[in-house]
């Protein structure tokens, strides 16, 4: 019991290290697509929190940010390493296009990325090769302003 409490404290401390001090609050959620039969006979796709998820399910990773400080935030960059069990599939509907990376160092559009081969040379990168995404916001985030960014993936 004591160990569990301690673990919870450690997790809580590590999960919110910057928000306590800084003016930017970032939260992430993972959603899963569910096909639901509607009354009119059509099939609707709903996204629900990913509590029940099996290989092959379509996931959406959502980042929400908010400027909780009094001054505007400039040069905001949000980066999200793609969990290795999730295959990147593209930006979610309504979300700006992220920059992608296959190595965690070099970011750019998917067409510009190449994957080094074990033998000499390299090949063009595909969605499955993406290991990290990031968004660079153009304008400043005013005090109290917020937004969401998200990308889609498939559970491997």
């Amino acid at each position: 019991m004591f160990a569990r409490l301690l673990l919870a404290l450690v997790l809580a401390a590590s999960a919110w290290p910057a928000t306590a001090a800084g003016p930017l609050e970032v939260t992430t959620r993972i959603l899963v697509e569910r096909r639901v039969a509607a009354r009119d006979g059509t099939t609707q796709i709903r996204t629900v929190p990913a509590t029940r998820a099996v290989p092959g399910d379509r996931l959406t990773v959502v980042l929400a940010y908010r400027n909780t400080g009094a001054r505007p935030i400039d040069n905001l960059v949000l980066a999200n390493p793609v969990p290795r069990q999730i295959a990147y599939r593209g930006p979610a509907e309504g979300s700006p296009l992220p920059e992608l990376s296959v190595d965690g160092r070099q970011f750019g559009a998917l067409e510009s990325l190449r994957v080094a081969l074990a033998s000499a040379g390299s090949r063009a990168a595909g969605p499955d090769d993406v290991t990290a995404v990031r968004w660079r916001l153009n304008g400043p985030v005013a005090a109290g302003a917020s937004g969401t960014l998200s990308f889609r993936g498939v559970l491997k």
């Binding site: 997790l11 999960a15 919110w16 290290p17 910057a18 928000t19 800084g22 003016p23 930017l24 609050e25 970032v26 939260t27 992430t28 959620r29 993972i30 929190p49 990913a50 509590t51 029940r52 998820a53 099996v54 290989p55 092959g56 990773v61 980042l63 940010y65 400080g69 001054r71 505007p72 935030i73 400039d74 040069n75 905001l76 960059v77 949000l78 980066a79 999200n80 390493p81 969990p83 069990q85 999730i86 985030v141 559970l155």
Partner: peptide, 30 residues
């Protein structure tokens, strides 16, 4: 499976960073 995002930004020219919470789910039996 866990997901964490990181952020970097400047306030009045001073660089700062922030981390998100960690969203986690357990893969179920298919």
């Amino acid at each position: 499976i866990s997901n964490t995002a990181t952020a970097s930004f400047t306030v009045n020219g001073a660089a700062q960073t922030a981390s998100s919470n960690t969203a986690t789910f357990v893969v179920d039996r298919k």
